[in-house]
Amino acid sequence: MNNEKKMSFRKIIACAVAAAGIVAVASPALAAGGAKHPRDGGFSFNGPFGTFDQGQLQRGYKVYREVCSSCHGMDHVHFRNLGDKHGPFWNPAYPNPNDNPVVKALAKEIQVADIDSETGESLMRDATTADKFPNPYPNATAAAAGNGGAAPPDLSVMAKARHDGANYIYSLLSGYVAPPKGLKIAPGQNYNPYMSGDLTPFWEGKGPAPKGGFIAMPPQLTNGQVTYDDGTEATVDQMAKDVAAFIMWTSEPKMVERKQAGFGVLIFLLMFAGITYASYRKIWKGVAH
């Protein structure tokens, strides 16, 4: 009887593993395409206990604000989020991020469009913590028209909208290289080995077409472009890494909370399973089945 029980256990575990296995192989099978595999940014938020590096998020915000935000919106992020728990400017002294003076000051630096509550005319005013990050373009058509037809995508959830998001963003931003000889590049396009695409139709060189694709965005980062408040040297690699971490945070702001909750839930479930198994053994004791 004992043997049989062990068997059924093994079976159930085997089937769980098998199920997880199918799932694991079935979904990511289609990722990369012809792009180069992203480099590992060595981020602090990797792994089941990984958390955001607050200094890195602050640097990343600066890069986003000074470089990216002139073309890319973040429609789902509000200034108050900067002071949220585990966010770039989280301060335990201000459980309500709307009271956080740093966040208030950062909001105030930015102008947002509004309607005058008395005259109904449109006006520009200082942002408050309750405001969203303003979009640089009034609408998608304007965004496309101002960028040669390719509207810069919203970055709010970009790290989840690409496979291996944070590493991908980091690799893409710091990975621009001179196009290989024999690659026909249309005006307004740039070659990036981490961009997905198929370059075969544009390849006149020897051997198979190079990995990568065309991207409308030219390289944006140059060494020393941003002056970091914490004295970190603003290399292209550093800035790409920091802004990738920042976008990971905007994409999944509850990640740390999620992992911490998960730890508690799993401990509880394991104990619950142990107690229930003991109860099960007691109830079935001496019962042939």
Binding site: F268, M271, F272, I275, T276, A278, S279, K282
Partner: peptide
């Protein structure tokens, strides 16, 4: 005891 503990864990869940 063990059954009560299991029941309590279920209630807690």
């Amino acid at each position: 005891f063990i059954h009560i503990a299991a029941g309590a864990a279920a209630a807690g869940a």
